[in-house]
Nucleic acid binder design. Structure first.
Lengths: 269, 269
DNA sequence: TATGTTGACCTCACAGTGAGTACGACCGGC
DNA sequence: GCCGGTCGTACTCACTGTGAGGTCAACATA
């Protein structure tokens, strides 16, 4: 068969079994975000093999053809590369929110061949430190503010492998936007939490302080966002203050009205 | 090589050239929306070959491995299956907004093999009637309100091929939501338009009438959405009324404040 | 006990909205 | 040429949600 059939032969291509001519691989990558010590962090693995040996990369791997769908592949890769595969770890992973982020398929994004990567976005509560998988030299949570995106690599640090810096940038944008109208911030917290803890999630993801009083009012005014448990914290904050009430996530899937980020009206690109 | 390597061998898989073991195909499908006679319509092609022979399907085809990225493949498929490949047609296609919608990769969504489809969404001005490609029996714009999604096929009509009904549903949801905060409605219109024409786009996509006065006020209050050309229509509407002013699309990429759909606050799933 | 911090709640001014009204240009029909 | 109806544009009004700030009492630390 011809290596470069002319443009008019797309019907010819479609009539044949693509496994005979289409050297395309499909991988799944995961932008897994969590809160570590009050800072937004992303899970990265250090590549043990070429290409990009020694570089940090998003966890991911090849889709198992014919045996799993994309969401399952993403969940499997996340479990494998965090080392969270025990019974209690499975319970922790059940609390993870996982959604598709986008698909990246430039022909030269992988030097080996044409690899189409379906990126996913995961919001996780504070997971234990990851253990490196067999094809990785290390795995760790990295605070995103020290990655200094999108200029990663310009100041001497090793840049992320492949186009993973761009994928991570998309994931952060999506996470910041999605917190406005979906109750996903609770996915970063335990089963119960306080309003100030919820506010800390928003401040960490958005990277700016929020007005405590207004945030409190808005969260409680959204129907189904949080519901009180009736209990409070055992003691006040480390620097004083009254005890905070406990809440749990409510049944809402959509925040109405949304919690909008401050100061996003004056810039129009 | 083993047809079913055990779960612990993912590193083994990653170390090998996937073209030797991964029977996965990547296709690109397009949900192309336009306005025909004031109604929202989607481009469908009738399949000439099995599987789903005779069924209507979204236009799409295989990604040309190593020679194009996903956006290029989507634009190529759209051009091919609309028969718009001439010079003036290229100009018409330049006005089309194209974006990635999502990727669908269930192992059994195609009976032949595991096919991962990267769906795209296109907003087009009133394009000419399409001509069927070589692998299609027919191609036509179908008003979406007669498709009766997602129950397509229940009332005797032939259902869409593969999981294309679900993909189309996602596309319509995305289009309706995106019109709120992106100036994409102008992509359905010509280079200049009137405010009532723009309102007709929103009413057709959202499927409900809008308050003319409030819509007018809101469109003009969004900086960079539209800018006046200084001219007006040659005459009033067919049933009377004054001449409407002409506008063209402004430089804004984001609508601030957004144009929100009415009546979306009382239902929380 | 003294002092500073903080969660919960409140007030006030203002921007944006839905609903309705007003006006006059314009159409078709008589 | 007149007339009734249509419709683009503009305005008013009441209401909602917001940002900014204040108040108070519970609480920690010294």
């Amino acid at each position: 068969m011809s290596a470069h059939p002319p443009a008019s032969e797309q019907d010819w291509l479609a009539a044949y079994d693509p496994r005979a001519f289409a050297p395309v691989a499909v991988t799944v990558d995961v932008v897994a975000l969590t809160l570590r010590a009050g800072r937004l962090a992303v899970l990265l693995v250090q590549r043990a093999e070429p290409p990009f040996q020694g570089h940090w990369a998003l966890p991911g791997g090849f889709l198992r053809a014919g045996r799993e769908n994309l969401a399952h592949a993403a969940a499997r890769e996340l479990a494998e590369e965090t080392g969270l595969q025990g019974t209690d770890a499975t319970a922790a992973l059940d609390r993870v929110h996982l959604e598709q982020l986008g698909t990246f398929g430039d022909p030269d994004r992988d030097p080996r061949m044409h690899v189409v990567s379906v990126a996913h976005l995961a919001f996780a509560p504070d997971l234990p430190a990851p253990t490196a998988g067999t094809d990785a030299a290390a795995a760790a949570w990295h605070p995103v503010d020290t990655l200094d995106l999108p200029a990663t690599g310009d100041d001497g640090r090793t840049p992320l492998a492949f186009d993973h810096a761009a994928i991570l940038g998309h994931g952060l944008d999506r996470a910041r936007a999605k917190l406005e109208y979906r109750p996903l911030a609770t996915a970063f917290l335990g089963p119960t939490f306080t309003i100030p803890e919820l506010r800390a999630v928003y401040e960490a993801v958005w990277g700016e302080p929020l007005h405590p009083g207004n945030f409190h009012r808005k969260v409680l005014s959204v129907p189904g966002f949080v519901e009180p448990t009736g209990t409070t914290t055992d003691r006040g904050g480390t620097r004083g203050g009254p005890r905070a009430r406990h809440y749990r996530a409510g049944p809402a899937h959509l925040l109405h009205p949304p919690l909008l980020r401050p100061g996003r009206e004056q810039r129009n690109p």
